[in-house]
Design a binder for these strands. Structure first.
Lengths: 226, 226
DNA sequence: TGCGTTAAGTGAAGGGCGATAGGTTAGCGC
DNA sequence: GCGCTAACCTATCGCCCTTCACTTAACGCA
C-alpha cells in the first residue's frame, strides 16, 4: 500500500463514485465547475488538507464525470486546488475584520486580529498550507503580487497598524514593515502548529496572545533604527 | 508537458543516467547508501528544493542502479528525503552556535542567532521546507518529539534565552515559552520568504534584525501574564 | 416534426510515478 | 572450483496527470 498518505478514505463513502450525472443544459456548462469545486473542497477536507491525496480522478468520480471534463474548467490540478482555496482566503479576511471589530482600542483590536489569524490557520490547515506554505512554483500565474500584497487582508492589517501609530499606542515607523513583522510572527506560530502538530505545543490562543503582547510591548518602544 | 514543476533538468547532464556501476564488494553494501544520499542531495538542490521533482527513478539513474535497489536502504521515498535533510539539520545548529558565539552580550548573541536562522533557511530553502514546513504525515516515524524538542538546536535556544534572563536583560518567565515564541517569529519570516519568494520582501537580514529588536524590547518588559 | 450546429462530455492512451515479488549474479571463504 | 549469500535486477502492478480525437445530447429553426 502507498503509505505516507494517511488513508482517510474510510471517512465515508457518501462521496465516492456517484455514478450518473445528467448533462448540463446548453448554456450552463459552468454548472459543472461549481460541482467540481464543491467536490474538491469536500475531498480536500476529508484528506486532512493533503492536496496530494486529492486526485483529479477522485474529484471526477465524486462529481459523476470523467477526468477530462475537469480540464474544461481548470487548466491543471494546481489551478483547481488554488481555486478552492480562494474562498477561504476571502473568509480569512472576513474573520479577521470581524475579530478586529471586537474592540475599540487599537492595540486590543490588533491582538484580537492576531489571535483570529492563528485560530483560522489551525482550523483550516489544508487551505492555509496551500495558500501560505506552498512552493512558489506551485501557485498559478495570477497568484502573485497583487493577490497578497494588495489583498484586502494585508491592507486591513496595514490600516490597523497605522491606527495604532495614529493613536500613539506604538512608536511611529513604516507601517508596512511593521505589518510584515506582525504577519510573519503570527504566521510563524500558525505554520509550526500545522506542520509540527504532533509536538506538545501550548494552546494556540495562549501562544498568539503571548506573541502579540510581546510584539506590542516591543513596538511601543522606539524599536529604533531607520 | 507536466507543468508546475519548473523543469530545471537543464542545469547539467553531468548527473543524469550514469550508466554502469560495479557491484559493491561483499560486506560493503552500505556504500550504495552513501551514493544514493549524495545523488539525492544533488538532485534536490538542482530541483530548487522541490522534493516532488526528485524521483526514485531519477536517483537510481543518477547512481547507476535500478529503482528497487533504493529500497534496500530506505523504506520509502520520504525516509530518503528526510535522511538527506538530517545533515542540514545538524548544520543548522552548528551555524546558530557559531553565530551566537559572535558576541558576549546575551541579547546581541540572541539577535545574531535569529539572523543566522533566517539566513540559513533562505540559503537552504529545500531542506528547510522539508524539515520545518512539511505535512506531519510526511515525516517518518522517528522524526517526532525527541527529534526537535530535545534537539540540540532547540535546547541551545532555550539556554540562550535563559542566559538573557539570568543576565537580567529580559524579564523572567518560562524560558521554553519564550523560546517557542522566538522560534516561531524567525520561522515565520523564513517561511514567508521561502514560500512567497516572488513578493518584494525587505532584505532578510534587515527583517530578522527588526523582528529580534522588537521581540527583545518586548521581552524586556514584563510581558505580563502567567 | 425533423435536422443541423455546437456545447458538453467520453474513451483510449501516453508517459511518469512509487512500490513489490521473485529471480539472478558476483564476491568470497573454504 | 564450488556453494552460499549479499547485492542487485527484471518485470510488473496500480496509481497519477494530462491530451487528442471522438461522440452525444440540447436547442434554435424551418
Amino acid at each position: 500500500m502507498t503509505e505516507g498518505t494517511v488513508d482517510v478514505t474510510a471517512t465515508g463513502d457518501d462521496v465516492a463514485v456517484r455514478p450518473p450525472r445528467r448533462r448540463a443544459p446548453r448554456g450552463q456548462g459552468e454548472l459543472l465547475r461549481d460541482e467540481i469545486l464543491e467536490a474538491t473542497e469536500r475531498l480536500l477536507l476529508d484528506s486532512g488538507g493533503d492536496e496530494a491525496a486529492v486526485s483529479i480522478r477522485g474529484v471526477a468520480d465524486a462529481v459523476g464525470v470523467t477526468p477530462p471534463s475537469i480540464y474544461l474548467h481548470f487548466a491543471d490540478k494546481n489551478e483547481l486546488i488554488f481555486a478552492v482555496c480562494e474562498k477561504h482566503f476571502a473568509e480569512l479576511d472576513r474573520r479577521l475584520q470581524e475579530a478586529a471589530a471586537g474592540s475599540d482600542d487599537p492595540l486590543e483590536s490588533l491582538r484580537l486580529r492576531g489571535r483570529a489569524y492563528v485560530r483560522f490557520g489551525v482550523e483550516h490547515p489544508g487551505p492555509y498550507r496551500i495558500l501560505f506554505m506552498s512552493k512558489p512554483a506551485m501557485a498559478p500565474e495570477w497568484w502573485t503580487h497583487e493577490r497578497i500584497q494588495e489583498s484586502a487582508s494585508f491592507m486591513h492589517l496595514v490600516e490597523a497598524v497605522q491606527g495604532c501609530i495614529d493613536a500613539g499606542a506604538i512608536a511611529s515607523g513604516d507601517p508596512i514593515r511593521i505589518s510584515v513583522a506582525v504577519w510573519a510572527a503570527v504566521h510563524g506560530i500558525t505554520s509550526l502548529l500545522i506542520s509540527k502538530s504532533v509536538l506538545p505545543w501550548p494552546d494556540p490562543d495562549e501562544l498568539s496572545s503571548f506573541m502579540c503582547d510581546v510584539l506590542i510591548d516591543g513596538l511601543r518602544e522606539a524599536a529604533a533604527h531607520s
